[in-house]
Structures are given as structure tokens and as C-alpha cells.
Design a binder for these strands. Structure first.
Lengths: 341, 341
DNA sequence: AAATTTTAGTTAAACGTTTAACTACTTTAA
DNA sequence: TTAAAGTAGTTAAACGTTTAACTAAAATTT
């Protein structure tokens, strides 16, 4: 059978309490006994029982990771990478991650994830946009929670966010520095803070370079943000005659849609139109040209969120800290210097 | 504080044992008391403590889900769907899933997932191909395990497999029924049972239609199985003059690579070449033409594996059952009737 | 009617930890 | 020299369940 703390105690000739102190560093133990205990632990291959420990401490050692199923199933491994960051960090922090999805159209009457109902987690991480009514239910459950890449309305949970404004600034400034002035923006709907901020950064960049902002160059009204949407938006923009020489798409998926539209319609990238995305989804290595973009450190989003959550759990204070994770400009083939015909 | 079984017992005027019997249906309880207890449970919003229960039963209520990180991060949400199937089924079975990845090049000396070392799972599900040495380490741990979509060498674990031969038969027969005879096969390396079986099905279909098998039409030597590989293989096939009119690619990712090669080289699909894949990764709705394929029921792979594992855990017998999940022919735009020029 | 079996419930031990309260020394302070 | 404080360890209770062993009453069999 699995060895218990008693076996260790017997083998090293001390009480089980002392063994516990050694395991948890919770009380001073003399060097000799500590070593004796450690040796016994090793030789018996002892591992403390989670359930016993959890029972007495009232903790579970688990953390829930929640996202909508469509986010989880996105073709770009964006949220999966974030999850992996969390999972990885959880290993060193000694937590287990319970991953579950909720429906994108979570209803008032839907069940919360079972680990919340059963209180089988010490806290949860919510990644990406989730329905309002889910957030309300979650907040009623009084569990510590941290949000990633989404600002929950009316709740001051701690958050780990992408520095969207800065990224959009970098992307737009990159295009400007290449000589472009007729720069289009393609974004998702305005109900998501990320798109709002990326648009904000775009505008700021233009302003500070004294380039007039033309609403005719901005498409940001769709609820979705996939390739199809990029394709459609590009169609809207390029069917009018407005001399666009560069496009900043608010994410790579849309950028790929734009790319497809341009290719289908005889525009060369980057010779005729420069194109930059956002996210760096390292999607398609076959993509040609390769896409300039703003790299979002996805693993880091996940690790930071876990660290933050562990802090909240341990301090028991509901610090409403916001961490803004910096992004990085990645220049590839899809952007080049403006060369008028 | 969280209500305990004692609170329920007090409220309903019975002993805690009776409450336990009601919760677990483990001993007959009269209808009246049962109802009284259930009412108390509901009104107190009582949920049994996992840790307490686990401690006494020696179970954990957790199941580990293991796959390599590159599988998890694949652009096609193939394994993520399988996971979702498992997770979904786990909800109704009352288990929690701990998802973790191992490295594709897992080394003898690498640590097993922490939940195995700590024995914090009652069993594990392994999805997709994993390194041999990992399997050996796993099997030394003596945990119940079920494999999905991979046949572990030298171990008779229970498995849930795709009916690859049948699928390949269906795909090839579909092409044959359209009048094609010069049908190429593009597969991955032969070290993976799936590719071997899909090739086998391809050959069987040709044989039973009395179409000679030409090795020049078969490319199956690469270790990887992505788009790039499909692209390269198509190049190899079509650069020789051999009148290929149809291609069966052993997965959709490779099929998409083939499609790209054909498009780049002026061949129309399906007018000039019919193309069918395998998996149905519902990748790119923008793909044109849409891809005929063999649908693999991914969720079902996951649910079946969980059911099987739960069976093993409960029966304590190491039944080495194999479940072959049926596939389905999905005809879309990329295959059409053979029309000689 | 007595003996036996069945049914519905109770009691108490056990699971493997953590930790508050205590003890017995040893060191330091007065 | 004695009292106080510090150190290193022990004892035992507690956490919230499950379950074996038991009891008392009811139902069935003889």
C-alpha cells in the first residue's frame, strides 16, 4: 500500500507531527532529524495524501480554468497556449488545473461548472470573453478569480491583460514608418474591450503623426473576428476606391482573411498593400507572404494569471490588480516600404 | 461555513450514516426518511466534501488526460475535441479531468506528470502517439489507463481507435465509384499505426476493384503529417508524368497542402484532380473547394475512452478491450466524377 | 407462538494529514 | 543560583466522509 506519514515517522523514529513539520517547513526542526526524516521519505517514496491534507486545511489544491468552447476550439492555438502557461506554472506552485468549457451563450439557468458547485477549487481563472450572466453567477459564488484577456464589466477582479493599445501603436507606427499614410483598420465589434483598445492605439498613432483619421478606412462592426470577417471587411474597404496602401487587422485570423481577399483580387502583399496583424498565432507556416504582426506572449498570460491567483488565494485579500503584459513587434514579409506606382 | 453531513443529519433527524446511504444509494432507506434527508440536503445546499470522501474511499475522483504538447497545440482542434468529449462525459460520471501535456521527445529521465507521481488520479487517458519510454514509465506506475488513437507497443491497454481501414476503404471506394483509377495515396510515416492502416484500406479498395496498385502513386515516408508534408508529397507525385486524377490524403492537413500545391500549379480541384482527406477537421470554412473527407467522431473518441476507463477502474479488471469507432464519408466539393479530357 | 429472517436504522472506527497545546530540555537573563 | 525564554520535539484532536458491526423492530417461516 501507499506509505503514509506514519510509516515515515516510524522509520525515522520521530512523531508524525515532526514529519509534517519537515514536509511543510512549518516549524523548526534540527538538522539531524530533518535529514533522517528526508531520508525516510525518499527511501519509502512517500508522497503526502492530497485528500487528507485538503480535508484538514480546507483547501483543494485545485484551480479551475474556464473558457468558452468556441475559444477552446479555435483553430489558432491561442487560448490553448494560455492554458498551457497556466498549467505549467501550476506545476511549480503545486496546484492542479481543472479545465472546463462553458457555452458561448451561457444562460442564467445553466449550471456552473461542477468544480464550482462542489467547491472543489480554490480559485478560478477565466480566459477570454465570457457571457455577462456567467460572470454574475461566478461572482455570487465568492470564489477567488482572475481574468485573462477580458475586462469583466462591473467587477473588479484581478486581470491579466494584453497591452492592446501599445501593440496597436506599434503596429500602426510600423506602417507609418514605412511611409504609409492611407492605413486601414479592420477590427471586431466594439463590445469587446480588446478591439476597442486596438482601435484606440491605431488612432493614437495616426494622430501623433498628424495623419488624419478617416472613418471610411475603419471597419469595426462585426461581432465575429475570424478569417471570414477579415475577408468581408477587406471586400468592403477595397471595393471603394480609396487608395489604401496598408492594413492593420486587429488579429491575425482577420489578417489572413484580408490576405486571401487581396490575393483573390490581384493585389500583391506587400508590394501593393502592406498588411500587419495582431496576436502572432504562428498559424500557417505555409502562409505566403509570412505575416508581420504583434506578438502576444500567450504562455506568459497564463503563467501571470496563475501567479496572481495564487497570491489572491494566499493573501485572502481581493486585490484588484491589473497586469498589462507587453507585446512585441514582429516584422515579417507582409509589410514593406511604401512605393507609389 | 460549508454545511457538512452532520448538519444534514441534524436537520433531518437521522444519523450521518443514513445521510451517507441516501447520498450514495448504498443501503436501503425508507421513502420517508430518504425524502426528509433529500429535502435537508437541498435546503442546506449541501455538497459532500471531496477530500473527506476520497480520504476514506482511497479514490481521488480525478482522471488524468495526457497528450504531447505538439498534439495539443495543433492548429486543427482534433485532440482538443477529443478532450472535450472526455471532459463532457466526465461530468456525468462524476470525475474531474486533469489535463497535462508531455513533451514529444519525453526522455527516460523526465518526470512523469505530477498527478501520477502523487497518485492523484484514479486512472489516465492517453491521447495520440506518445513516446515509448513514456508508456513504459506509465505502465510501471500500474495505473489504469486507456489509449485513444494510438496502439501502444507491447502493452495491452484498453484502446479506443478510429476505424482507419474502413475509413480508407470508404474514401478510396468513393473515388473509384466516381470513375477514378489512377488514385494516389499520401500518408505519414509507417511508424504510426494509423498511417499504416489507412494505406492498407487504400490498397484493399483498389484490389477489390481489380485496380493495380502502383507504388509510384504512393508517398508515405515522412515523419510529419502536416500541410507542408502534403504540399511536398504532391510535388513529388505531380512532377512526374503519371496521370493522377484523384488523391487520397491520409489526413485533412496533408490534403490542404495538396490542395495548395495543385492550385499553385494550375490544376483545378475537382475538375482536374479529385481530392479527399481524412479526419474532417472542419478547418477552414474559407477553403475552396470544400474538402471531401472521412469524418472522425472526435467527441465520441473522448467519451468512449472515459466510459471504458471508468469501467476498468470500477471492475478492477484490466480488460484489454478495443473499441473501434466508426467513421463517415463526407462528400463535399473536392471530389467529382472522372472526366477524361 | 416461537424462531428466523429481513429491513431500516445507529454507532463508532477509520482514512492520513495539520496544528494547537503541551513537555522536557537548554540557553540566557537577572 | 534561580527564573525566564527559547528550542525541539510529542500528544491528541480535528477535518468530513464511508462502512463494518451492531440493534431494534417488523415480517416471514416453522
Amino acid at each position: 500500500m501507499k506509505p503514509t506519514i506514519k510509516d515515515v515517522a516510524k522509520k525515522s523514529g520521530v512523531s508524525i507531527a515532526t514529519v509534517s513539520f519537515v514536509i511543510n517547513n512549518s516549524k523548526p526542526v534540527s538538522v539531524e532529524t530533518r535529514n533522517r526524516v528526508l531520508k525516510a521519505i525518499k527511501s519509502l517514496n512517500f508522497r503526502p495524501s492530497n485528500s487528507a491534507r485538503d480535508l484538514v486545511t480546507g483547501k483543494t489544491g485545485n484551480i479551475g480554468f474556464i473558457l468558452t468552447d468556441d475559444h477552446f476550439l479555435r483553430t489558432e492555438p491561442f487560448y490553448t497556449r494560455i492554458f498551457l502557461g497556466t498549467e505549467f506554472e501550476a506545476r511549480s506552485e503545486g496546484y492542479y488545473i481543472l479545465l472546463t468549457t462553458i457555452k458561448r451563450d451561457f444562460k442564467e439557468t445553466d449550471n456552473l461548472p461542477r468544480f464550482i458547485i462542489d467547491r472543489n477549487v480554490d480559485g478560478v481563472i477565466v480566459a477570454g470573453k465570457v457571457p455577462h450572466c456567467f460572470i454574475e453567477r461566478l461572482s455570487a459564488s465568492n470564489l477567488p478569480a482572475v481574468f485573462i484577456d477580458y475586462i469583466p464589466p462591473k467587477n473588479d477582479y484581478p486581470m491579466v491583460l494584453i497591452d492592446n493599445i501599445q501593440g496597436a501603436l506599434m503596429a500602426t507606427n510600423h506602417l507609418i514608418s514605412l511611409g504609409h499614410t492611407n492605413i486601414a483598420f479592420i477590427g471586431g465589434g466594439t463590445e469587446h474591450p480588446s478591439w476597442v483598445d486596438r482601435l484606440k492605439g491605431y488612432k493614437q498613432a495616426l494622430e501623433s503623426s498628424n495623419i488624419p483619421i478617416k472613418n471610411s478606412l475603419i471597419v469595426a462592426n462585426d461581432k465575429f473576428q475570424g478569417r471570414q470577417n477579415g475577408f468581408n471587411s477587406a471586400k468592403m474597404l477595397f471595393s471603394k476606391k480609396n487608395n489604401i496602401t496598408a492594413v492593420f487587422a486587429a488579429n491575425d485570423a482577420m489578417a489572413i482573411g484580408v490576405l486571401k481577399y487581396l490575393r483573390d483580387n490581384g493585389k500583391r502583399v506587400p508590394q501593393d498593400v502592406s498588411l500587419i496583424g495582431f496576436d502572432d498565432i504562428e498559424a500557417d507556416l505555409m502562409l505566403s507572404p509570412t505575416l508581420s504582426t504583434i506578438r502576444v506572449p500567450k504562455l506568459e498570460l497564463g503563467t501571470e494569471a496563475l501567479k496572481l491567483l495564487v497570491n489572491v488565494i494566499k493573501s485572502k485579500k481581493s486585490l484588484s490588480k491589473k497586469i498589462l503584459v507587453p507585446v512585441e513587434l514582429i516584422i515579417r514579409e507582409s509589410t514593406s516600404i511604401y512605393s507609389p506606382k
